[in-house]
């Protein structure tokens, strides 16, 4: 975990460098006699440099007293990827096919992947939940959910 902390510290410093570069190129538009839009970013990035340096120093000289499982396992990695892809596909598909058609499929895939096996339960939940959310958001709260491009 020492190695992880050192990598983290270096990553943060790299990020700080990127942020400083962006801050340097901020457009200058300001009222007289006052701080500009770059002031706060400079303060923050300085804090970030100091803290990252402290993290590095602490890890190198004192080791770290924390006990964390620092590894993201393969299983977790694949479920993170699965979640991200699923949500993105869900959102994109909703724009084309509409909330009412896509949501049951989204729910079914999710339920099956979490371990639901009874098809009655899966079908019933997915349709009722879709319809319930639709009624609650669109009919009661007048939030227009995507209807899809083909309709």
């Amino acid at each position: 975990m020492r190695v992880v902390n050192i990598i983290l510290g270096l990553t943060l410093i790299l990020f700080g460098g990127f942020y400083s570069y962006l801050t340097l190129h901020l457009p200058d538009r300001n009222l007289p006699n006052t701080l500009g839009s770059a002031f706060m970013p400079w303060v923050l990035v300085t804090c970030l440099y100091i803290l990252s340096a402290l993290l590095l120093l602490q890890t190198i000289y004192r080791g770290s007293a924390e006990s964390c499982d620092y590894v993201i396992s393969k299983k977790e990695g694949s479920s993170i990827l699965f979640l991200v892809v699923l949500v993105i596909v869900y959102i994109k598909a909703m724009a084309y096919f509409g909330f009412l058609l896509v949501t049951p499929i989204f729910l079914i895939i999710l339920m099956l992947s979490i371990g639901a096996r009874k098809w009655k339960e899966v079908l019933l939940t997915s349709t009722l939940v879709t319809f319930g959310i639709y009624l609650f958001f669109q009919k009661v709260f007048q939030i227009i959910l995507p209807a899809g491009k083909f309709f």
Binding site: L124, T130, F151
Partner: peptide, 24 residues
């Protein structure tokens, strides 16, 4: 019971179709 589940699902789908904007 299986049949009644199916009917509920089918009804819900049909009902929600009714709420969809019509193509015209």
């Amino acid at each position: 019971r299986n049949l009644s589940y199916l009917i509920i699902v089918a009804l819900t789908i049909v009902f929600s179709m009714g709420f969809m904007p019509q193509v015209s």
